[in-house]
Amino acid sequence: MAQQRAEFDREFSGRLAAAASQGEGHAAGEAHAHEWETSPWPLVISAGILLALPLAFSFRFVYEQPLAAVLTLGIGTPLIVAGIVGWVREGLGGEALGLSPAAMPWFILAEALIFLSFFATYWVMRLAAPEWPPAGTVALPRVVPLVMTAILVSSSFTIHVAEARLAASDQRGFLRWLVVTIALGVAFVGLSAAEWRELMHEGFTFSTNAYSTAFFSITGFHAAHVVVGLGIFVALLLPALRGRLNEPFTRSASLYWHFVDIVWLFVVSQVYYW
């Protein structure tokens, strides 16, 4: 533990210098230790989030001003994307991010509690209901969820292989398996979207009953996590194509992906087959 810490400390001082020399384009040299470090991207991302989420949502659903909603969404989303791109350039290339695998479990703890809250709500509604499924429920697909499970579980294996390839310094192998993982994730999201459309078409919507409420929020929330995971993978892939690899961050990304995979097992068993 102590050794790990000392090791990190060394890494950290290297990182400070790297970030300073990248961030502002100052002349290289020892002066950096005395400069304030900066990065514009956190501010850019926050501004984007403020516009694209609360403001766009309120314009659309509270004040019913679609034009303003489109505008705020249209300004906010590029800000978020630009912020993430800038951050990835600045961070994933130069910085070691050696501590990210240590930080990820804390984040996963928080994420797990979100799902737990949704499931708890679902269980309470379901166990208190006089009849289940409540009136208005349509027949849910039986086969597609199994296919989706197979896809997601295998993607957990493929990302694991990618990670192992990277550890073995096999860059091409890493890229290949990373791309396979991304493809599987995209297939999963596609199936999920198709299923949603199908169900809504049959008249099973957010507001049909307690079951549809739980169904759409839990599966939707899970799908959103898959999308975020895919975004992280893309953020790994693009620098990797130009030869900039980041082993610790790959490990964190894969940890996150395994978590999303495990949550899906709960989603399938609780929401589809119970």
């Binding site: 970030a19 470090e37 990065s39 956190p42 991302i45 926050s46 501004a47 961070g91 501590l99 930080a103």
Partner: peptide
């Protein structure tokens, strides 16, 4: 010398300001 993830820290404070 600083926190583990200084950029993330800046993101926290700006989200708070938002």
């Amino acid at each position: 010398r600083d926190v583990a993830f200084p950029r993330l820290n800046a993101l926290s404070v700006w989200l708070f300001w938002a």
